[in-house]
Amino acid sequence: MRLIPREVESLWTLFTAPVIWAGHFLAAYIGAAVFCAKQDLLPFGFGGVRAYIAAITLLALAGIVLAGFLAWRQWGFGAEDPPHQGWSREDRRRFQGFATLLLCALSLVAVVFTAMPAIFIAECNP
């Protein structure tokens, strides 16, 4: 078993981080909405929602960091500078790696911004 996934040549890896971001966003907002609608039936308070959001945030950030590392590797660890616009297969690979890395950075910030309200807001709005 490999600890770090083997490099695959597929366009789909480009979307890993944005998909994690979207999943985290939905999980956070839907989770909080369900809790606030059903809080009388649930055995835990809003602290439970904050802990849940903290957990999915750490999970999402870990996933994005891993995707970012793979993208960095695909880019060749920055051995060459962008824009990688040659005709070769190597250029195509590096271009995709660099684009994926940038999307990972964007998604990382977005996940942190999505989770930030849970730091300040401690109750459901009546």
Binding site: P117, F120, E123
Partner: peptide
């Protein structure tokens, strides 16, 4: 964002 959110409560 932190400043704005901290005002909400």
């Amino acid at each position: 964002l932190a400043y704005g959110l901290s005002m909400m409560p």
